[in-house]
């Protein structure tokens, strides 16, 4: 379980990115974090694993106060938090397998990672995860030889290789086409269900968020302005989050993807059967 209390982040330039953000994420819950760009979504999830240092407030992961850890302890805490990135952030020139195994870096000593001699169970787990995300044939390829959707699957496998207790997911679909976006979102949610993993998904696409998340948190200028189930996300609530923004455009594009989605659902079933 993750609990965030009164989290505040002020950048050195004086910009206030987050103000008094508090919420709790119980085991197995998938939270969609929405809000206009610049609302502090990206800062918020980076404060959880302290890629960005919060100014005030606490972040607790299963009773461990992450905000108070020193560097060695912080590394051990980061092992328990998997992260998936917007532009995949794979190490392009390493193989797919090395990228997945890099999820174990926090667990192995330097010489083992340097010589690429990871323990047998780590390697077996990496193969199993690649199989799970449908890339078992690509283990020896270099990451920059894959398509966008495939790279994001590698990113998911890398995060799961850590055996995380929490997933932080930063705009997982921002560089993907609509069909692939849905496949990736479905995969993420399925995996969270299988493992009872809590996840915070930072996402700009409200329709995707509504479709896949158990709960939506809306950020506006660094403050939580909405917190509730996807069904409660009314027109009025969205205006509160996004201001004067026009909704119809976003919903229209969702309707256009309908056809693609039917196809993709069939594919997902096929994948499930294969497993």
């Amino acid at each position: 379980m993750l609990s965030v209390e009164k989290l505040t982040k002020v950048y050195r330039t004086g910009d206030k990115a987050l103000t008094d953000v508090s919420f709790e994420v119980p085991k197995g819950q998938v939270v969609g974090l929405i809000g206009p760009s610049g609302a502090g979504k990206s800062t918020l999830i980076r404060c959880v694993n302290r890629l960005v240092e919060p100014t005030e407030g606490t972040v607790r992961l299963n009773d461990l106060d992450v905000t108070r850890l020193r560097s060695g302890e912080l590394r051990r805490a980061r092992r328990r938090i998997g992260m998936i990135f917007q532009e995949y952030a794979l190490v392009e020139r390493l193989t797919v397998m090395e990228n997945v195994l890099s999820g174990r870096l926090g667990y192995v000593p330097f010489w083992r990672s340097f010589t690429r001699r990871f323990p047998g169970e780590d390697i077996a787990k990496a193969f199993r995860l690649l199989d799970r995300v449908g890339l078992s044939a690509h283990a020896d390829k270099r990451a920059d030889a894959l398509s966008g959707g495939q790279r994001q699957r590698v990113g998911i496998a890398r995060a799961l290789e850590q055996d995380p207790e929490l997933l932080l997911i930063d705009e997982p679909t921002a560089s993907l086409d609509p069909k692939t976006s849905r496949q990736i979102m479905r995969l993420i949610v399925e995996i969270c269900r299988e493992r009872g993993l809590p996840a915070i998904i930072n996402i700009h696409d409200v329709v995707l968020a509504q479709q896949f998340a158990d709960r939506i948190i809306g950020l506006q200028a660094g403050r939580v302005v909405f917190d509730g189930g996807p069904a409660m996300l009314t027109e009025e609530a969205l205006t509160r989050i996004y201001g004067e923004e026009d909704w119809t455009a976003m919903q229209q594009s969702a309707a256009e993807d309908e056809a693609a989605e039917a196809e993709e659902r069939a594919e997902a079933k096929k994948m499930m059967r294969a497993l």
């Binding site: 047998g120 390697i123 193969f127 020896d140």
Partner: peptide, 19 residues
């Protein structure tokens, strides 16, 4: 889907030579 049914995965992996 369960681990028992899944095939045994290799426990060794060698980085394929790149150049």
């Amino acid at each position: 889907m369960s681990d028992a049914a899944s095939p045994a995965y290799p426990t060794r992996w060698k980085r394929p030579p790149q150049m």
